[in-house]
Design a protein around this nucleic acid. Structure first.
Length: 435
RNA sequence: GUGGCUAUGGUGUAGCGGUAGCACACGAGCUUGUGGAGCUCUUUGUCUGGGUUCAACUCCCAGUAGUCACCCCA
């Protein structure tokens, strides 16, 4: 480095992460488990660029979000460009663009990286990866059931038991119905109350009641009964009889029942569940860790039947959810469910004397052709140190090549975890390390 | 974007207005073809920039980053 040059910082950019091999292994494990489950349900992978025209988000989210919460800049051709902050507009754009050529229903998933320009905190970074799953083209409530059961299967695949998480369910139709028809609030007031309900868990009961009363007015008692109902049955019976057969109620009832039929019983109706986006039209849900130390939602999603309208297309019914990698990893760490790491390299070849190097390279090449990952040690260090290196790097098998192996063509294949050593001919090595 | 707290070897942590310790990790050795333990030795540090002071890692200010809350929530 020449004098006068400032040393470059080795820190990653604010709010983003480097993935060293050990972290990459965790990331890969999470992604692989996500993929395995959703592909079992027949979902197909798609992807798209991180760059989108800024108006894609303006159309739905408004100026404020674009200017303050996203990475948006002007390119050399004077185009406004945004680093995608979420995947749903992108997938809606893709579906709308090729709508006539696609055969519905579409079961699609992607694991995009998403960007937001915000103050970073634990679990909320400026770049994160998110599993996005969507099913387009089916109105039936069975779609909600499928998508929610898929979220549950993902957590089970990671080794969580049903007592460690719960599905919270609500329906935008119920929310709107309560705000507009039951409480008869103005647009402005129902918006204010929706925001208040969203924040209920973060404030004291007194504080919440006081603020709610100020908005709701005369019907505060009814509101309190509704908002404090501990389960779906109580909630329904708090409603005036003619209102109990409302569409949203019936839908939610059906979703809960059908999930139960599939053996998913850790489902709870939660009238305070709102979710931020405006585009939801029916069922909304989140999956929560039941551990009180980690009260963030792991999955969130819902039905959005109208979104394609922004592209001038006729509506397509759709249900989807997202799951972030950061929260997922925190959750698995909390329950100690991250698997012990192992190298992708299967066999490490220690070289005892330099004259055996060529022979060892030939052996490695033969094994690679047989599909085995092999690494060689050219350090010239003592055998013990070479083995120690393999052990530290979690390579499961080691063999040492020296004069006697060159002469005999027999190899001792050592499994480091158990210490067991097997003697093998070259042709038998694959069988041993693949066991 | 606003406010609070924090910043010491690679990691985790002590400490003091006057020569920065410890543990683990890393490297070398005890051990000439078999690792994980133990022992010995070595390398590595006060986030950046200003200010106060005879003297700053320590006190003050700013920046940067992390973290928490607000905001917002994909």
């Amino acid at each position: 480095m020449s004098e006068g040059t400032k040393k470059l910082s080795t820190d990653a950019y604010k709010g983003v992460r480097d993935f060293y091999p050990s972290e990459m292994a965790i990331q890969n494990y999470i992604f692989a488990t996500w993929k395995k489950v959703v592909e079992k349900f027949g979902y197909q992978e798609y992807t798209a660029s991180v760059l989108e025209p800024a108006e894609l988000y303006r159309a739905k989210s408004g100026e404020e979000l674009i200017n303050e919460q996203t990475y948006t800049f002007t390119d050399r051709g004077e185009r406004e460009v945004t680093l995608r902050p979420e995947m749903t507009p992108t997938v809606a754009r893709m579906v709308a663009s090729k709508k006539r050529g696609l055969s519905f229903p579409l079961r699609w998933y992607s694991i995009p990286n998403l960007f937001r320009y915000e103050q970073p905190q634990r679990g909320r970074l400026r770049e994160h990866w998110q599993l996005n799953v969507d099913l387009f083209g089916v109105k039936s409530l069975q779609v909600e059931v499928e998508v929610i059961s898929m979220a549950v299967e993902i957590l089970r695949a990671f080794g969580l038991t049903d007592t460690q998480f719960e599905v919270r369910l609500n329906n935008r139709k119920i929310v709107n119905f309560i705000l507009n028809d039951v409480l008869e609030l103005s647009t402005e007031n129902s918006h204010a109350l929706a925001k208040l309900i969203d924040r209920k868990a973060k404030m004291s009961v007194e504080d919440f009641n006081k603020k709610a009363e100020a908005i709701v007015g005369l019907k505060s008692d009814l509101f309190k009964t509704l908002i404090n109902s501990q389960n779906f049955e109580n909630f329904i019976s708090a409603l005036p009889v003619p209102l109990r057969a409302h569409e949203g109620i019936v839908e939610t009832q059906s979703v809960i029942e059908n999930l139960e039929k599939l053996g998913i019983t850790n489902v709870r109706f939660d009238q305070t569940l709102m979710r931020g986006f405006d585009y939801y039209t029916g069922t909304i849900f989140e999956v929560f860790d039941t551990n009180p130390d980690n009260r963030r939602s792991v999955f969130g999603g819902g039905r959005y039947d109208d979104l394609l309208a922004i592209f001038g297309q006729e509506k397509v019914p759709a249900v989807g959810f997202g799951a972030g990698d950061v929260v997922m990893k925190d959750l698995l760490e909390t329950y100690n469910l991250l698997p012990s790491q192992q190298s992708n390299t299967k066999l490490y070849i220690a070289i005892a004397e330099e004259s055996a190097t060529g022979f060892a390279q030939d052996l490695a090449q033969t094994l690679r052709e047989a599909g085995i990952s092999v690494a060689l040690d050219y350090s010239g260090k003592k055998i013990g140190d070479q083995i120690k290196y393999a052990d530290k790097n979690k390579i499961p098998f080691v063999t040492v090549i020296g004069a006697s192996e060159v002469a005999s063509g027999q190899f001792k294949i050592k499994h480091l975890e158990t210490g067991v050593e097997a003697t093998a001919l070259e042709s038998e090595i694959a069988k041993i390390v693949n066991r």
